[in-house]
Design a protein around this nucleic acid. Structure first.
Length: 424
RNA sequence: GGUGGGUUGCCCGAGCGGCCAAUGGGAGCGGACUGUAAAUCCGCCGGCUCUGCCUUCAGUGGUUCAAAUCCACUACCCACCA
């Protein structure tokens, strides 16, 4: 293996499986190559799990290759059976179209569309929509053996779990067709994806060999495993999204900052674009003085900057510093406080009106789900106003509790914050 | 097609006429310890106008003073036999 890029990916533990690695290395070293990575629109936004493969795609571009980001306008209408033990419910066409647009935007921000090896954006609906069913069955379907299709992990698992519709069964054919089409249009010989995509990718490699008598390559990326065995990127409340309206930059940053110590090294390997030396020194710091959380901060900073921009990240960091810092919250100057609170979930009250009770306020701010929950937390001593524990349910905030005459900082537990602003 | 078993709170899973908002485990939440980490320990864990009230045990209807628990039908799942 000679490709430096592959060596780097190996170091990052970002390679699960590849087709002949020697061949692949030779191919990559031979020039600026096209490669593709696809995402199906199954939600209005990509999430952190998608970021793993996307990061790898970006590494290819930085290494001089030409990335093709494909949004599955067609495949998203069909549904990938991989990794699922039950049939997906089909989404409405208009909904999927809307999601395609949104995901496209996110992808655009992540790759470079200018320069000598610009990225390309593709949508598989462009070449599947014009093809008739008969044409598809004759031109593409003829090259597939059902025996082989049945043997694919994604299908066999489903057969065992009770069955699979013809629709989802056909998914691998569509994805293979995509690879073929991109090979024709953009001379693309490599597809990358999550390790669960191996079967689908290889189906494309086969198709290209059969139809075009050309060789193509596959590279899959391991799914991130967390130390506690749970799925990476999911919290009890759901996924961590890249869309700032779905997961605030503050929450996004906090997610990484709060990573389990045991996961930080791999997360840095996976997501960071820092040099190996810099990363090694962060790992060292993690071992020697984990309490300082230097590696956590570096990780959270870098990933958040990549997604939400450097400016936004600084704001979020400053907010966290102000709100979690040692200094008295009452001593923060108005501008600092205001910008910190901007990053938090917030509610507003109208000035002049009587303040709601403590329980109602916690509820209104969304810190808890119900009044019962609010009472519980208050009773348990986990509710704080401006960093002071308030354990009386009947407590009613007063004018004097306002910081700078208009803010209140609510906190549940150690790190769940919300802001209240009184409009004048 | 036949027969038998099942469907319980976020998940798994007890309960099989009153003592049931329902045992236990997991997840989650709060507290203590720490580092906005992990582990551990303690507490909480349907809702509300909260010493009480309201809505939950697949759905509908029924029996009963009283049902998650009994009966009937419907839907779905599982097992065995054809």
């Amino acid at each position: 293996m000679t490709s430096a890029l592959l060596e780097d990916l190996q170091w990052r533990k970002s390679i699960a499986q590849t087709t002949d690695q020697g061949e692949l290395a030779k191919y990559l070293d031979g020039g600026s190559r096209s490669l593709y990575l696809g995402f199906d629109p199954t939600a209005p936004s990509l999430h952190i799990g998608n970021l793993v493969a996307l990061t790898v795609l970006r590494r290819f571009q930085l290494a001089g290759h030409k990335p093709i980001a494909l949004v599955g306008g067609a495949t998203g209408l069909v549904g990938d059976p991989s990794g699922r033990n039950s049939e997906r419910t089909l989404n409405e066409v208009e909904v999927v179209n809307d999601w395609v647009g949104k995901i496209r935007k996110q992808l655009e921000g992540f790759l470079d569309f200018s320069g000598s090896n610009p990225a390309i954006m593709a949508n598989n609906l462009d070449w599947t929509a014009p093809v008739s069913a008969i044409q598809f069955l004759r031109d593409v379907g003829k090259h597939f053996s059902v025996n082989q299709m049945l043997a694919r992990e994604s299908v066999s698992a489903r057969l065992e779990a009770g069955g699979i519709s013809y629709t989802e069964f056909s998914y691998q054919v569509l994805q293979a067709f995509d690879f073929l089409e991109l090979n024709r249009r953009h001379d693309c010989h490599l597809q990358i994806g999550g390790s669960d995509q191996w079967g689908n990718i290889v189906a494309g490699v086969d198709l290209i060999r059969r139809v075009e008598s050309k060789s193509a390559h596959a590279l899959t990326i391991p799914l991130l495993a967390k130390a506690d065995g749970t799925k990476f990127g999911k919290t009890a409340d759901g996924s961590i999204w890249l869309d700032a309206n779905m997961t605030s930059p503050y929450a996004f940053f906090q997610f990484f900052l709060n990573s389990d110590d045991r996961d930080v090294e791999q997360l840095l390997r996976t997501f960071s674009f820092k040099s190996h030396e810099e990363l090694e020194s962060l790992f060292e710091s993690l071992r020697i003085n984990p309490g300082a959380r230097e590696a956590h901060r570096a990780l959270a900073h870098e990933v958040t900057s990549l997604i939400h921009g450097e400016d936004q990240t600084l704001k979020v960091e400053n907010a966290a510093r102000a709100l979690f810092g040692q200094s008295e919250i009452r001593e923060l100057d108005e501008a600092t406080l205001e910008s910190a609170l901007k990053e938090l979930p917030r509610t507003s009250l109208t000035s002049g009106q009587e303040f709601p009770t403590w329980v109602d306020l916690l509820c209104a701010a969304g810190v808890v789900d119900s009044k019962s929950a609010a009472r519980r937390v208050v009773k348990e001593g986990g509710a704080y106003l401006n960093n002071e524990k308030i354990s009386g349910e009947d407590f009613k905030p007063q004018q004097s509790d306002l910081l700078h005459g208009r803010f209140m900082v609510l906190r549940k537990g150690k790190r769940d914050l919300a802001a209240v602003e009184v409009d004048s």
